[in-house]
Design a protein around this nucleic acid. Sequence first.
DNA 1: CGGTATCCCCCTAGATACTG
DNA 2: CAGTATCTAGGGGGATACCG
Lengths: 123, 123
Amino acid sequence: MFDPQCPTRQLLDRIGTKWTSMAVKVLAEAAPHEVRFAELRRRMPGVSQKMLSVTLHSLIRDGLAARRVEPTVPPRVHYQLTDLGSSLEVPLAALRTWAEEHMAQIDRANATSDAQANPADRA
Amino acid sequence: MFDPQCPTRQLLDRIGTKWTSMAVKVLAEAAPHEVRFAELRRRMPGVSQKMLSVTLHSLIRDGLAARRVEPTVPPRVHYQLTDLGSSLEVPLAALRTWAEEHMAQIDRANATSDAQANPADRA
DNA sequence: CGGTATCCCCCTAGATACTG
DNA sequence: CAGTATCTAGGGGGATACCG
């Protein structure tokens, strides 16, 4: 965007999209087994068919996931993380842990700010 | 969004915004010293006055940064990470390291995908 | 079953201008 | 110096419908 040499911004643009990090998580939890499209959908509550498809294809484009199709009728499509995807899961898991431990604190900070900005709201 | 119990999504919604992670990084690098608004702007190439202001205020709302105003004319405003913000810097730094080590691989994967999708583009 | 195609809304973030 | 206010385009992502 402003500096193509900032890989962190590029990475966050990818894992920051709504479903990407969750897809990586689900695929990482299932590893070393593959996961089918419908199973992924089931494990990602709220995702639409379209957004799951878009998310998976971007993971594949980025070399983070691999796709395998069984040429049956109807077809069975399987996904799994690549080695690159698995390596990303490491720092991502650290971020998840931080989130689980500290998001409540962030929520509290927001509540405090709101209370100070609009004291009447506490009525 | 779909599940308020997913703290990771909430966290990514914050650090995924364009300037947040960079602001955290600059503040972390300067720590334990404070950083003034103009200095932050200088160290974040491309950020507009408005977006820096918005970014900093969201960090403050979230309890990740603190603001100190010297009541002079013109005013001097100083920012620094809170303890919570500093703790976030740890997993964020891990993500940055991963990005620096592997984004080139992701770029290569994209180039390969493009070449396979549009072979004519290689002309 | 596992997708694509189409439409549309909203929010992020940039440009610009003004202020205590 | 350090902001806020206003306007706007652009893209993310949801709903729906159709397809191999």
